[in-house]
Write a protein that binds this DNA or RNA. Structure first.
Lengths: 366, 366
DNA sequence: CTGAAAGCGCTTACAG
DNA sequence: CTGAAAGCGCTTACAG
């Protein structure tokens, strides 16, 4: 039988109250008593019962984490970031999953029925988050990570996709490229449009009007899409891929064309995911700080759960919510939570596929 | 304030005991009473407090899941499999993570200190599981998923790697290949040796002695490794890659050699992971049933936690523990747990990279 | 079929 | 600084 505070109390010759006090590092304990209790606890291998503690205190120390249907490789980094924060707060992560065939109502039902978690972190792809939002409406704090299906009145954290789009495009412009293509993926998500917007902005900033002919759409076959590009009279000299996965496809396909990267075609991606295998040439890409994204989301949630929570960084200065009053301390006012959107900055990882390494340009990034 | 059984009892005009009975579907309740209680519960939106239930019953309903350091893409499938089982058992998954820089002692400490879980599922790569095993020694049921660092006295589930190695090799032999290379990856794990063993077995079965010159080792550069192969006087006509990731590298590198797959070189992989991008040609590979692996591991653990648990499948017939008595019901005897090893069967996914599609051979698999 | 009471392992005012 | 008592929200013999 595992010892309880009652056992420790009896063995030490004090009351349960006192044992409880040393357990909670209460100051009102005689140092000598404290030490005696601690010795007995160590001897007995005493571990307090978390459940009983939480029940007595009327608190919940679990937060839910909903994994997306298909786990991208960078999910690992996000999870590590989330875990690093949650761990330090003395809470635990309860895992929820969905399948592509069920919607989130399934998860919502479970969360409500078990009534274990005090907040929820959700990361997902294409599915509509409506069901999740109903959780928030029931009073469960919710933070959404990366890629919402639409602009929502739910706190969420992502990367500054537009700035990333600009960064990539500006870099290619600086390398001398004038005809830069943009490739949209098959799945239509707002983040890709933001990246495209950044691309357009950078072009206009450089005095170039975006050419609709250079905007490519993957309709299921990247190969076909690039073949059309290849058939163009005025071919692009560079291509900005809306994400890395797609960029690696481009790399492989274009090589089959007999083109050399970056000489015949420069390529820049978005994500900075670990390549499926040592790609040649190494991909220049916009780096998403996935670990930090996870940390930020976790700290947002913890702040919502406990106003006294002190985040490791002032994420709120990265907020882009229009409703937010800059001078106030928004995170202490519950009313401002629902519309909070934090965008982390991105950086450019310059490698070989853009041609910067053998161009006259020496500056690493924008 | 959320209503408690006390509130429900008062509003219905019964005792807490009775409310508790309808909550637990006890038979000793008057149907009319039951209905009245249920109506009040619905009206009040009553949800029982899981923590209190567990405390009162003296049970734990959490199982720990330790994610590997680097999350492979198929981790998602394993997780789905685990979750599908755990969900149905009315338990929850608590997530634990490690970083490449810390060993498992960190997780072990946390598990002990929080004392929340009743069992642990661990999936990992190369790290030594010694610290985890100390959890088992402390009485915490532990099941290890896929790829242990060594043969262990811990229940674990994997795939039949040797049979997979045979399957792949037999297929290539049937297609007429005589010189089949085997490529070892940079990370040295027992499963790769098992696959190699299967490769050797299949060759010998066909009357061929494995040629050491055809056993390739990736010492950090697959490319260099394949260049050596290319320089061989008697080149292999087929290559069996110890895992898919590596196979996709081979595909890319060999294409750069100007070789066509499968005509100049047939390739077979192992894993059946979702390709990094639509690979051409599609990879023939040994399929690991990751979802089932997750389910099996979860059901093993649940059986250890509760002897009355009825698994959805008789996984135990796939056991390969030498200590196991075939005629007995081993899963009800605690003593047999520690050495239990279950190997799920694999299948061959025949696609284009092996050449079966344009060979005279019509049979899909072995 | 139902209720009063004790209990799960802890916390927390309240007295002293 | 310490203890007795009531309580967190539930369960479970024990009587009736």
């Amino acid at each position: 039988m595992k010892p309880t505070i009652r056992d420790i109390a009896r063995l030490t010759g004090v009351s349960k109250s006192t044992v409880s006090r040393v357990l909670n590092n209460s100051t009102n304990v005689d140092p000598a008593t404290r030490e005696r209790v601690q010795r007995v606890m160590a001897e007995q291998g005493f571990v307090p019962d978390r459940m009983a503690m939480q029940l007595a205190r009327g608190e919940k120390r679990f937060i839910g984490m909903l994994l997306p249907t298909l786990t991208w490789s960078f999910m690992a980094d996000i999870l590590q970031g989330v875990a690093s924060i949650v761990e330090m707060s003395g809470r635990e992560i309860i895992l929820y999953t969905t399948t592509p065939f069920k919607d989130f109502s399934h998860v919502v039902d479970r969360v409500i029925a078990t009534n274990l978690i005090s907040g929820m972190l959700a990361s997902f792809h294409t599915q509509s988050p409506q069901h999740l939002i109903s959780l928030q409406q029931r009073g469960l704090p919710l933070v959404i990570i990366n890629m919402p299906a639409a602009r929502l009145s739910v706190p969420w954290v992502s990367v500054d996709n537009r700035a990333g789009g600009m960064l990539a495009t500006q870099h290619l412009l600086k390398l001398g490229h004038k005809r830069i293509a943009f490739l949209f993926p098959a799945t239509d998500l707002p983040c890709f449009h933001d990246r495209y917007e950044g691309y357009c902005l950078a072009l206009r900033e450089a005095g170039l009007e975006p050419d609709p002919a250079l905007v490519l759409y993957d309709d299921g076959s990247v190969s076909k899409c690039l073949q059309e590009m290849r058939a163009m009279s005025e071919k692009p000299t560079a291509i900005f891929s809306s994400h890395d996965h797609l960029a690696y496809s481009i790399l492989a396909i274009v090589e089959r064309f007999g083109w050399r990267v970056p000489d015949d075609l420069a390529i820049v991606g978005f994500d900075d995911m670990i390549p499926p295998f040592p790609a040649q040439p190494a991909l220049t890409t916009v780096r998403q700080p996935f670990y930090e994204i996870g940390q930020c989301a976790a700290e947002m949630l913890l702040s919502m759960l406990d106003p006294r929570y002190a985040p490791s960084r002032n994420w709120w200065e990265l907020s882009v919510s229009p409703a937010l009053d800059q001078s106030a301390t928004p995170h202490h006012d519950e009313q401002t939570w629902p519309s909070l959107h934090i965008q982390l900055p991105v950086t450019l990882s310059v490698r070989d596929s853009c041609g910067a390494s053998h161009s006259t340009l020496n500056q690493p990034a924008g």
